[in-house]
Design a protein around this nucleic acid. Structure first.
Lengths: 233, 233
DNA sequence: CCAAAGCAAGAGCGGTGCTCTTGAATTGGT
DNA sequence: ACCAATTCAAGAGCACCGCTCTTGCTTTGG
């Protein structure tokens, strides 16, 4: 009845959080494929079957971790946008990209969980689509806030791309020119291409100074969506 | 002694190939994480322990599949380059990108094996680095063959990127201007960002006509590495 | 022709996700 | 204050996993 619904309810919440914490620890240590319910239970001093009182299956526990990961990277991106309020749009774009990269490098296994290979036999439930779109929404908002350079605003798209561009623009950002929306979607996926190659080790022996390379590439991406760097002082 | 070294040798080769084939089938059906030696053996009518005569461990079998996948996508890219000999560099670039995408869409699980999350606890042996670089080498060769537009050849890089650019250029393509090499590496990773988002389902409910979107984005990538489209007839 | 090498098979180890049953504890309504 | 309903941890057990080791049988090549 009251706000704290008895000791039982409270214990349930606490144990659920403890399970997620321990699971996240094991995720960081071993990766998603090696996440073991028995190991989590062992570490928490309980029996494996008791875990099923809190999560009906291993997949359900994974889903909880996935939602948390999407929220965490989305929060990082949103924080970078907030921290650069007033700066030039291109700089804010790069800051958001770098915050996303930073989170990914700090949480490589959680990043792999959401932007790596989908877990086979696992289909993301509806709960994940909202959190999953947060980074993309941040990027869109930056493009929207910027005064679009005349380049993209009036850019003529090839005839074949126009229908898809207009459809995507209608869905995502009806106030933006279709050419900008298409460029945004491409930049969005390419941003995660850059991050994935770094996190997944594809840049080994290819790129050494990855921070510098990323900052440069993110700046180019900003240009590709019509954000222009301010003149140097 | 002879070219066919006895029935034993030949049987070994055949069984090894059968194991890889069945493993590839299970990879497509269940994904890398659920690849089970016992299931492969069961399907082949042998006992699980017999498999260890052919592959010393599950990881060794995975490595064989990974090398085969890198070779397959590399071959697809090389075939596209060969098929467009004489065409404009930008068109050849787009053809190679589309061939890579086509292979990925046709073999999503093998694609995930090589460009998705690394398998936890598994470190790629040396054998994989050669096959892994084939697509990248194709892209480099196209940029090299093209007459570089004056834009990238003389483009001034930001001071911070110059050392890394010159280092990468020395390693990968000493005959190309550093600015082009940096743009190439970025385009390379961004290409796989586009493909991964499509294969891994991130474009669901975002991009509908994905072939058109990809062709357009690949063309933009070609421009970003200095390849210019020929004038329309 | 026979010793050496290659091989399939079986048993077994410790691990996994998951289910079902049992008995104890807590709870809320009377 | 008590008691029935609910909630829970625990245990046993199922079928599976990767992997190792030993046991014999078959093929091979000198």
């Amino acid at each position: 009845m009251s706000s704290t619904q008895g000791a039982r309810e409270r214990a349930r919440i606490e144990v659920t959080a403890a399970i997620k914490d321990e699971a996240r620890r094991q995720l960081a240590a071993e990766g998603a494929a090696r996440l073991s319910l028995r190991a989590v239970a062992r570490e928490l001093g309980m029996v494996s079957s008791a875990l099923y009182r809190y999560f009906p299956s291993r997949d359900a526990l994974l889903t909880a971790l996935i939602v948390d990961a999407y929220d965490a990277v989305g929060e990082a991106a949103e924080a970078a946008r907030a921290a650069t309020r007033g700066a030039a749009p291109a700089q804010r774009w790069v800051a958001v990209c770098e915050a996303t990269r930073g989170w990914a490098l700090a949480h490589p296994h959680e990043y792999a969980l959401i932007y790596g290979s989908p877990v086979p036999g696992y289909t993301a439930p509806r709960d994940t689509v909202g959190p999953a779109s947060r980074v993309g929404l941040v990027l869109i908002s930056l493009v929207r806030d910027a005064h679009l350079g005349p380049g993209l605003a009036t850019a003529r798209l090839p005839e074949a791309v126009r229908p898809e561009a207009e459809r995507a623009a209608a869905d995502l950002a009806p106030d933006l020119p279709p050419a900008a929306v298409v460029a945004m979607i491409a930049a969005w996926s390419q941003l995660f291409g850059l991050i994935s190659f770094e996190v997944f080790g594809q840049f080994n022996r290819v790129v050494e100074d990855r921070a510098v390379f990323f900052a440069h590439s993110a700046t180019q991406l900003a240009h590709s969506v019509g954000l222009v760097s301010p003149p140097r002082p």
